[in-house]
Amino acid sequence: MLEVERINVFYGDFHVLHDVSLSVAEGEMVAVIGANGHGKSTLLKTICGLMPARSGAIAFRGREIAGRSPPALIGEGLVYVAEDRRLFPDMTVLENLQLGAFRPEARRHEKRNLERVFELYPRLAERRGQLCRTLSGGESQMVALGRGLMSNPTLLAIDEPSLGLAPNLTAQMLETIATLNEDGLTILIVEQSIAQLEGLIDRTFAIEEGVLRESAPVDGSPA
């Protein structure tokens, strides 16, 4: 579904990603593991069109997408959920979710997706009228994920959902993501450690100083 071919990404003069290649098949849940500052977020952002690649190719569902704008990519079903959530603080939970369905392609499925999000997170339904700046960290992450689902993704790229969450909340969050994956959503997830992902993911890549390598298949042995 997603094919990344030897992309190189720079931040100013700083070479962040070196010849990174990666593929994700339909229905897979793939993790990229790496420490802070090694290029995980940059990889996701580049895939989702939020940062430009200087060379290399990215194909999504068989079509070349490098250089296309984020709005167009969202229309295609490639959706990014940021590590720092990026909610709109002075808007309500409902408005944040509605904005997830801003693109016309997503608007068509808005009603159904909203029901699904509220089903997944009844808490958000209760707090739909609350301003996002007043939410707790866990609730914020729910809105962020919910907003991503509202964009009607076929591939959801999730950037460190565990950031700032207590371990038990992280576990719940990852469970939910795994459930979404079982329902057919392709997922590319980025985390600092594999620990809490074990047993949930199909394949793992490790990223170190901008170089990506596929790790041994996950079979319960320590990565």
């Binding site: 984020p70 709005p71 909610l87 709109f88 603080p89 408005e95 904005l99 997503a106 964009s151």
Partner: peptide
Amino acid sequence: TRYGQAVRAVSQDIQGAKQVGVD
């Protein structure tokens, strides 16, 4: 209106607005 919401979204978090596909 939805476009009005997008305007407010941009004013509150540009990066977030880009992520949901606001031009």
